[in-house]
Design a protein around this nucleic acid. Structure first.
Lengths: 337, 337
DNA sequence: CAAAAATATGCAATCGATTGAAATAATCGC
DNA sequence: GCGATTATTTCAATCGATTGCATATTTTTG
């Protein structure tokens, strides 16, 4: 009979302890003036009744949720799925980073049909801040919302005049890096696989073009707007490679996933990588190490990226003004080039 | 000057509309008796001031959060990362399924050091229910918590006497299926790659043994406790294949990810799949279609699985009692066997 | 047209924790 | 030993929406 009926709130515990609810609150949150003795006593009591203060009530009162929203807009690419390896890698890193800082992660997948999707999330009051993974083709929406809602950061490219705060790698430099590498390997006819309507991919394509222009190979470029999803990219790529045009000597894929699809199509056509065609990906995902041959790629440091995203976001939540971050990409040469 | 200062709560709006807060509440939530006329008027007003009721206050009052926690315990495998393709695939499907049912998804990665990790989450009051992906080696903890906390479902294996509600495929049957397939292809020496301390993998191994026993090949089995993470599995596998023992004719990998690692090791050793060694994975993930050669596997229907998980969970939240679900696995023969 | 029934709206308590101000208790200086 | 400080604790308002009950309004009915 020592076990009373369940302690359901701070007042119950206060009654048991013979103090006021306010005192219990102060004892349990390690803040506020209170004697060490009562604090210990009340904490022990709380443990004994395994009581934990109601988080919703706390949130309401202190006006914060302790959760950060992570949103993945699947804009230009309806079939794209949350299980895309890039998203996922980023998601995992963000989960780690946010957990470390004491925040929960609220995941949301959005298909932006209207211009309203972001507003709805922002105004829902469910989260203290928002991380958007990828701009897709929604830069305008992001800019509009960023103008009124501070705690918002975006993984993606940075472009002139951009209003929203972004973290990403220098896509132009990366595209240049990849292309220059292929040129150095002796490739002349080069194909770019990727849909340039997405901001980042467009920038990578520009970098690719710049490298080609420098080498005087501009007229040798083919552009194939391959889908980002592996299954969807397959026919795009197969269509191009079997269309009868001159076969490219080098392929710049706008993502590692696209590169993997290309790898498979090439294998199906009996072409050897890198002997017949050289192929380079983009992102530096772990799966590039598991392919045969292992994939050369332009690596984005996603660990640092995730760290920066969270760091900037928390600073913005704290009211600070922050600029965007552009990180240098790194060429990783493995066996596919 | 038509735009007054920001409407921040239901009372502000009530004042503007000239009604009581209660009426506004009733108008905005499509419940309760209220005249169509006032409802429309107030809704229009709300839209005009783009006001949305505070969710935290609502949650506190109606005692639910509208969020479901998804927890990934990384028990027996410290290096394992949230970006494991299986987790991720499941996560994406759950996100879709939950969004559809009007719930948010709160993601949490846990490394269960103490026996307390699950209790903390359950008692935090952040979520209305919990989905745990994978039992890892934490069946005991899951059973203990399930005994007192109803809205909890687990993806994973089902074993006799299990207390917690689980959804998963019949791992024993799956292991049998994979092994029988290899035997039919003429394999005699068979290796099983996977760490059987995890419940599901242990069951797959049992199925594998059963098939071998039937064929009188029990003494031909090698067991390699490969890690679940691709990078960590690589040395495990390479170590086994170069150890000088008789090379297996068939390999049953406990997951597609392990199979991918095996594929790479075999390629590095100059062995052809399936000519020199036949290889079958487990899970039926999309990435198995992108490998060279495309991977044979035992497919678990994760879409249905995710649907079942959410369905059972919501029924449990509603107070219903539910049993576990064991789904039949399906043999998918591609080019690696 | 009055009474009964049905429909709308207002009132006020409630969910559970936090926190500034007020009250009380403990400690100190001389 | 007494006022002045300082350390604790209590009190009560607050965060913002929901909802049972009471009241007011409208509609129906005989």
């Amino acid at each position: 009979m020592t076990e009373k009926q369940r302690v359901r709130n701070i007042s119950d515990l206060a009654r048991i302890a013979g103090v006021s609810p306010g005192t219990v609150s102060r004892a349990l949150s390690d803040t506020g003036l209170i004697s060490q003795k009562t604090r210990d006593r009340i904490k022990a009591l709380a443990r004994e009744h395994d009581f934990r203060p109601n988080i919703m009530a706390r949130n309401l009162r202190i006006q914060r949720t302790g959760a950060i929203g992570v949103v993945i807009p699947l804009g230009h690419e309806t079939g794209q799925h949350i299980s895309d390896p890039f998203f996922i890698t980023m998601l995992g890193l963000l989960a780690d980073e946010l957990t470390e800082r004491g925040y929960d992660l609220m995941l949301s997948r959005v298909i932006p049909k209207d211009g309203d999707w972001l507003d709805r999330f922002v105004d829902s009051g469910r989260v203290d801040g928002l991380i958007v993974i990828g701009q897709s083709d929604q830069s305008a929406t992001l800019d509009r919302v960023a103008a009124r809602y501070r705690p918002l950061v975006v993984w993606g490219g940075h472009s002139k005049g951009q209003v929203h705060c972004s973290v990403g790698s220098d896509n132009f430099a990366g595209g240049d890096l990849a292309t220059t590498h292929l040129i150095e390997r002796g490739c002349k006819r080069i194909a770019f696989f990727g849909d340039s309507r997405a901001l980042e991919i467009g920038q990578r394509l520009e970098g690719c073009k710049a490298a080609l222009a420098r080498a005087g190979l501009m007229d040798q470029l083919s552009i194939v707007p391959a889908h980002l999803v592996a299954e969807a990219a397959h026919p795009d790529i197969a269509g191009f490679l079997t269309s009868g045009g001159a076969r490219p000597q080098g392929i710049v894929a706008a993502s590692d996933v696209i590169a993997m699809s290309a790898l498979r199509v090439l294998a199906e056509l009996g072409l050897s990588v890198p002997d017949d065609v050289r192929l380079i990906g983009y992102d530096g995902l772990a799966l590039g190490e598991q392919t045969v041959p292992r994939l050369s790629t332009v690596k984005q440091d996603l660990t640092t990226g995730a760290h920066n995203l969270v760091d900037l976001l928390l600073r913005r939540i704290a009211g600070e003004e922050t600029g965007s971050v552009v990180m240098p990409p790194e060429l990783v040469v493995r066996l596919s080039t």
